[in-house]
Design a binder for these strands. Structure first.
Lengths: 412, 412
DNA sequence: TAATTAAGTCAAGCGAATTGACTTAATGGT
DNA sequence: ACCATTAAGTCAATTCGCTTGACTTAATTA
């Protein structure tokens, strides 16, 4: 018997280091998973009868009946009118109750913060924004807590229960996080050093989670956008910086340290003077610089929209250059991830985003160019500037209600 | 109430399209998962007592006891001598029984095929190889079935039970799979068109699965190599072609169509004449061409080893060029995936691989260059030419015994 | 020698899905 | 108009696998 490498399966009796193992599970995990599966099925299919749910999830009618009854008692689903269709007893479809759960989403951007409240199905039920001091997080947090209190108050008006149904607060801000040299203008260094999550958790009493802005965009696309029900999608987000949100196997992928998809810092060639980070070329920051605009300008959005509609030559020039890099980025993403589709999202006004999308065509050949494709290789996602805040809010909802491996396991 | 995009959560009562949903689960799923967790814990930690297992998996002592008893009866684990350590009753460590399961791994390469039998802990217990006609799969399959029969016969000599304990046959061959134009010399077009898996399944009576060679390499690294117990690792495989095997969240990631990681076809710049596929520059095929060697040469391996040891100038020149591209590839991989480590593996002789690894240093700066790192950014994996076959065999073992989401769910 | 610590077993309990028979309420064929 | 058929959904008993809490065993330490 021989091993192909030096690393044999030698038996070491007892290690000093902590034991590495995944958690086990029990009936609670089973039940939690099945509840989540029901919710996801209703989210993806609109409304389903118990019999439909049983067929779709491979559970017995009886199990489904019990779970649906539970969910109904918890106010997460509601029965619609019975439907007669063909032979047999009429069926009673169930659908999700939007007011069954809420989450708060917080986007922290360079000069601006947005807060939204999103319900179980992804509708925005309250929103608020304010400008933010770029380098004064302690002041900024006060502003944020004020906005959160405001939307919470608004939420309280919706129903008496709604406060009880808040599942968490999701934060989205530019990454990457936790690096050595945070004196990088893309990363909002002052905010990264500040104990943001702890302060927000203490100030709101909610569970707080963090993602980068591209991840939030992908999360938003998955809950209410182009990635709805798609298990392998990459969301290319062109904002002030540029990054990719990765939906792999139906879940957001964050990497070993939460920085997966931060392609803004990717160098564009192996070496030498042409070796520029992607962020310096294909990002709105580069566009602002190209146009000599001040990123803090309050009318920036409208100005850009007007220039894009008018096909301003300087804008078109930037588009052409950026499109070249982005076209190649899509090629690389397709080659590396083999996704079902790539979604282009942007903080830019829609006319600009559309022109950018057009300029990226024709796409470079890649393995994505395969026979029998159904989804487009590249499609436009949302260009709503609130999308990141929505995605931030979608994360706690997804954590609470979507089927996922970790939800089955004990503890953690 | 408003939604940030056109895509509202409108309730459609009953769709014609099939209902999309994940499977539910039940106690069988629970139990299957817990068994797998035990096996993984023993694989990662060598030998553990029931009490250790209970602590590590968060299950109760009693549950662990029952499962261990089951596993012991099934011949998958065995008790070692009791150990006295500190106060309390001595504990009885358990370890995996290598002969508890076997799988056959098959590598199909351009001019060669290798077959191995691997046991539960990753030891190679039988091996065989033969040369293969590049473009005659129907003949080739006969040769392969002959080799498989041979190793199975050898396996039968190990124990009476061993044939019953064969969990499957894993195939590894160059990808990508299922593209439009399979008249590409890297992809072995004749083999891709041939109904290989069906023929092998019929000819062996075993479950058959397929991966590309880089994925197999990553699977091998995970079971017995540098990625053992690491949940986020990318395995960069430099063989005749080049590709990456992706271990994400502790599982191999294959993408939407099974072609994730096939970076050989990645273009090295956005456009223009410099836009070459990576495969044309950083692969052994390019080295053979650079040296004027015939890839089918039987002594290729020894020749390359000798040239590398002697620091042949032509080889060193290729190494320098390839290292530049690979250094950049590592940079991109780190930026995109944020893995805990990148593993360089190769079908090249070890001296050549070592020189290549050295030439890749210093690495380009990236987000992987973070404070508090424990693992090296880049490390050398196996250079054993049998590694791909081992990885091919490891896949069915992993499928049968490793904890994974899909193993909990009902049905297939 | 007695107290303490820890591994591991025993037996009853419990939660959640399964099973199979049953009820309800439609449609479609004669 | 009637009855067989089809399908949704319920009822009650069962089963399966983890949990609970008390108990046993066997070592170390004071």
């Amino acid at each position: 018997m021989q091993s192909f490498n030096g690393v044999k399966g030698e038996t070491q009796v007892h290690d000093i280091s902590p034991i590495r193992a995944k958690s086990g599970t029990n009936q609670e995990g089973t039940s939690a998973h099945n509840r989540r599966v029901m919710i996801e099925a209703l989210r993806l299919n609109g409304a389903l009868s118990r019999a439909d749910l049983a067929r779709a999830t491979q559970l017995t009618k009886q199990a489904v009946s019990n779970i649906v009854e539970d969910l109904e008692r918890d106010g997460l689903v509601v029965a619609l009118d019975a439907v007669r269709k063909g032979r047999g007893q009429p069926f009673t479809p169930y659908r999700l109750v939007p007011e069954g759960a809420f989450a708060i989403g917080l986007q922290i951007d360079r000069h601006l913060t947005r807060v939204v409240v999103v319900d179980l199905v992804g509708n925005v039920v309250a929103r608020a924004e304010a400008s933010l001091p770029f380098d004064q997080p302690s002041e900024g947090v006060e502003i944020i807590l004020g906005l959160v209190a405001r939307v919470r108050h608004e939420l309280a008006g919706i129903s008496a229960q709604s406060e009880r149904r808040l599942v968490g607060l999701g934060v989205a801000m530019p990454g990457p996080f936790g690096l050595k040299n945070p004196d990088n203008k893309w990363m909002m260094p002052a905010w990264q050093q500040f104990p943001l999550l702890e302060t927000l958790a203490a100030g709101t009493g909610l569970n707080v989670g963090l993602q980068n802005d591209a991840a939030a965009c992908a999360t938003a696309e998955r809950i209410v956008g182009a990635a709805h029900g798609i298990d392998h999608a990459v969301c290319l987000y062109v904002g002030y910086g540029i990054a990719a949100g990765l939906i792999l196997n139906g879940e957001l992928y964050s990497g070993g340290n939460g920085n997966a998809g931060e392609i803004g810092m990717a160098l564009l060639s192996p070496a030498g003077p042409g070796s520029t980070p992607l962020e310096h070329r294909a990002s709105l920051a580069s566009l602002y610089q190209h146009l000599g605009l001040n990123p803090a300008d309050a009318n920036l959005y409208e100005k850009l929209a007007a220039l894009a509609v008018a096909a301003d030559p300087k804008v078109m020039g930037w588009i052409e250059d950026a499109a070249s890099d982005l076209r190649w980025s899509v090629h690389l993403i397709e080659t590396i991830f083999d996704p079902q589709t790539v979604i282009l999202t942007s903080g830019a006004p829609e006319p600009l985003a559309r022109r950018l999308l057009q300029a990226m065509h024709p796409l470079l050949p890649s393995i994505a160019d395969r026979p029998g494709r159904r989804l487009p290789r590249l499609q436009l996602g949302t260009t709503d500037p609130w999308a990141i805040a929505v995605g931030a809010a979608a994360e706690p909802i997804s954590r609470a209600f979507d089927p996922r491996f970790s939800a089955i396991l004990k503890a953690g």
